[in-house]
């Protein structure tokens, strides 16, 4: 199952490092990253494969959310199907 992680917030050092570290610790494999800075705001969309991971999705979501709040960014992790069904027939 693929996971879509979106990160939005004020730019600072180490956002990508933190997110990728959490994913690596939980054996979640990153497939693609798209990131940019717009008007000082950090935007990242990351797609990852979660099938090999042992952690429950809701737990991973909780960790990402809490760690994100610590550095003032919003992190959302969603099952990719919500995007697939909405945008492809």
């Amino acid at each position: 199952m693929k996971l879509v992680v979106t990160v939005v917030g004020k730019d600072r050092v180490g956002i990508i490092a933190m997110v990728s570290q959490i994913l690596a610790e939980n054996n979640v494999n990153i497939l693609s990253i798209n990131q940019n800075i717009m008007d000082g705001f950090f935007n990242m969309i990351l797609i990852a494969e979660i099938s090999e991971s042992k952690i429950k999705l809701t737990e991973l979501q909780k960790i990402l959310k809490e760690r994100g709040e610590e550095i003032n960014v919003q992190i959302k992790a969603q099952h990719e199907d919500i995007f697939n069904v909405m945008h492809s027939v």
Binding site: V4, T6, N34, I45, E80, I82, N84, M86, H87
Partner: peptide, 12 residues
């Protein structure tokens, strides 16, 4: 294949 615009649109 989902695009970044699709993801942003859904979340918006």
């Amino acid at each position: 294949m989902i695009t970044i615009d699709d993801i942003l649109e859904t979340n918006r």
